[in-house]
Lab assay of single mutants.
Amino acid sequence: MPEGSASLQLAVGDRVVYPNQGVCRVSAIDVKEVAGQKLTFVTMRREEDGAVVMVPEGKVLAIGVRKVASAE
Rank of each mutant, 00 (worst) to 15 (best):
V34M: 06
R25W: 11
S70Q: 12
P2S: 12
I63H: 11
S5N: 11
E48C: 06
G58H: 15
R46S: 07
D30H: 15
R46H: 06
E3F: 05
E48I: 13
M54V: 15
E57L: 15
D30W: 14
G13N: 04
V42C: 00
E57D: 06
V42L: 07
T40N: 06
V52R: 05
V68I: 14
E47P: 01
S70E: 14
A11I: 09
T40K: 11
S70I: 11
V60M: 15
V68H: 07
G50Y: 03
V68R: 05
V34F: 08
V55N: 03
G13K: 01
V26Q: 01
D49I: 02
E33T: 10
C24R: 00
R45T: 15
M1W: 11
R66K: 14
V53T: 05
R15P: 02
Q37W: 04
E3M: 10
N20H: 09
V68A: 07
D30L: 13
V17Q: 07
V68E: 07
R25C: 00
G58A: 14
A28Q: 07
E33K: 06
K67F: 08
E47W: 02
F41Y: 10
Q9C: 02
K59V: 14
P56D: 09
Q21T: 07
V12G: 00
R15D: 02
S70G: 12
M1S: 13
R15I: 14
L8N: 08
L61K: 14
D30Y: 13
D14T: 03
T40L: 10
E57S: 15
A51P: 02
F41D: 01
D14C: 01
Q37H: 09
Q37F: 06
V42G: 00
F41G: 00
V31S: 06
M1N: 13
V16P: 00
Q37I: 15
G36S: 03
V17I: 14
G4L: 10
R66F: 07
G50L: 03
V65I: 15
E33F: 11
K38Q: 08
E3D: 12
R66Y: 10
L61D: 11
R25D: 02
Q9E: 10
V16D: 01
G58R: 09
V65E: 04
Q21G: 10
V16C: 00
K32I: 15
M1D: 12
G64L: 11
I63A: 13
G13S: 01
I63G: 09
F41N: 02
A51F: 14
S5F: 11
R25T: 14
E48Y: 12
V65L: 10
